[in-house]
Design a protein around this nucleic acid. Structure first.
Lengths: 329, 329
DNA sequence: TATCGTGATGTTAACGTAAACATCGTGGTG
DNA sequence: CACCACGATGTTTACGTTAACATCACGATA
């Protein structure tokens, strides 16, 4: 910077003003400085900037994995929104999905160059009680029940499950069977609960849910069980991958979809419309979730008044070829 | 830091030594300092540290999207490996997949707090010629042909395609049809080329490839075309999603897989074994790619002698239920 | 013409840390 | 016992930037 100042024949403060876009620099001076910067290949040092300003213009994202559609899509949206606001994103992986792992990530947080964090963790491990956030660290949580302590952004899981279940009932099915996600997942719990409540509200029998773990394989296992039951004509799987597994099980048993059995998924992953048959599923707007996370976080950082509590992003049912009225109706 | 020093009754330099793990601090002093840190909730300021040390202990990853399996899995591996080496990861999205977008990302790089970057861009837009890297910026490129200028880590696309094609020929198929990825993709080009060369080497006819764009929908369209051709008994799709689309097209035409037609994919996405039927595919070791990226980058940063050029990660064919010998053989 | 306000630019200091050097005390050695 | 080596700790300084304040020139005003 001093070199640039010397070459341009100004003080280093003027160089600083040019590089931060300060208004009170006369155009001719500005051009000189810019030329000098160009010639010397000057790049502002972000560490020094951060040190002086007391902020990093960076947000952290704490997560277990990028392997799930939801997480990677959410991160992508966070990325885009943050870039637009002039913030960079640092990813903070949780080494092990245990309470200790999470604590470790939060501890490291203090030394990381971030102004705030988005926590994407759908499991119960995030026991808000014993999390110690570094002071001045803002946080937004995705998909959790930490709403009491932290602002939460989440998909409206319950409404999605309700729409899926109602859709199947409205087609005329006697009841709806359910392949659930793992018990330790908040999202899975809420989907299962809404499914149950919808059935109860309609005065239908509530069959025992099949427990899955989000994987297609677990859906396949559940499908094998359900396929043995001739009374099962409608299935709500808690995600698309499990729906995929369920459908494979029925195909292998020679049962047709949606002729013999209707299937609804959840997520609307990009491949869902290419499944055989194309999957009717609940669309989650991950992009919107990511956007609201960043907005909420920046609102906190900038000390703007925000709406605390839980921010629910709506879902919508996408009708495709895997659902139909039951045979003989 | 000064407060900690005062409370512990030592100089700030000793606090620094404790916080960086310097050996020449006697145990009793160390304990005192640690206690003071604890009490005051001291966290080292990473900006000041970076300023002083001249390094950020952060790596950047430039990419277009996290939506593809390959990218998100690679990023995840980079994340894990970097964490293990004590480095954080900053994601740098390229706003628009154009030459300008890429240039913009590289320009911003200079102001970003990173010691090196991994560039994950499989398209030809990365025209190495006019990329201006900030001085002192190390780079590793994934999946590209920039091998002349930069170190490259890539999956052995050609060998994977070769294995897939050979497998189908060895089953006894007359020839192998191909659904390719988009022309602007390096990986797609290499897969198509290896498929062609393998057929030629075996003295088989080379049918015209169907052009896809990685999506299941494009695979479905290609599948509709191929399904009309009774001579087509073996298909190599350039990725699993397109294979999924191809299979749906055949299912809809009432053609059985693998009875009438064998299909091989590429990637081995987690759902591949849950497809109907489970998909024979070429497994890519994204985790290994990510690992080698970080290793290569750190080697450069630390000025260790490295192997320049292209580092190829092997692939392997995973046999599942979508391939069989042709009918009547 | 003396005074003052205004806008452009320069000077000083501080952000928190760690390298380099300085100092101090202790125990070993001739 | 004088001297030295060495390990533990303290002091000084600089990393690159920008906020705050100081200065300066110039035009407007009484």
């Amino acid at each position: 910077m001093a070199d640039v100042a010397r070459l341009a024949g100004v003080s280093s403060q003027t160089v600083s003003r040019v590089s931060t876009g300060h208004p009170s620099v006369v155009e001719s001076t500005r051009q000189q400085v810019l030329a000098a910067m160009q010639e010397l290949g000057y790049r502002p040092n972000s560490a020094a900037r951060a040190l002086k300003r007391g902020e990093f213009r960076t947000l952290g994202v704490i997560l277990f994995t990028l392997a799930t559609t939801g997480n990677s899509r959410t991160v992508e949206a966070i990325l885009a929104q943050a870039a637009q606001e002039g913030y960079a994103i640092t990813l903070i992986p949780v080494a092990m999905p245990t309470q200790d792992g999470v604590l470790g990530a939060f501890t490291r947080l203090g030394e990381l160059a971030v102004d705030g964090v988005v926590v994407i963790m759908e499991v119960h491990l995030l026991d808000a009680a014993n999390l110690e956030l570094p002071p001045n660290m803002q946080v937004v949580v995705v998909d959790s029940d930490a709403g009491e302590r932290y602002p939460v952004v989440d998909t409206d899981q319950a409404d999605g499950a309700r729409q899926a279940t109602r859709h199947l009932l409205e087609l005329g099915h006697e009841t709806v069977w359910h392949v659930s996600g793992p018990i330790e997942s908040f999202a899975a719990g809420r989907r299962t609960q809404a499914w149950r409540e919808t059935l109860e509200a309609a005065g239908k029998a509530v069959p025992p849910p099949q427990l899955g773990d989000w994987t297609a394989e677990s859906g396949y296992q559940a499908g094998l069980v359900l396929a043995r039951n001739p009374g099962c004509t409608a299935i709500f799987a808690a995600n698309d991958q499990m729906a995929l597994g369920v459908m494979r099980a029925f195909h292998e048993q020679g049962r047709s979809i949606p002729g013999d059995v209707s299937v609804v998924g959840f997520d609307d992953i990009p491949d869902a419309h290419a499944f055989f048959p194309p999957l009717t599923t609940v669309h989650q707007d991950f992009a919107e979730v990511g956007r609201r996370c960043v907005e909420g976080l920046l609102r906190q950082i900038r000390n703007e008044p925000g709406s605390p509590g839980t921010d629910l992003v709506p879902t919508r049912l996408v009708l495709r070829g895997s659902t139909a009225a039951p045979r003989g109706r």
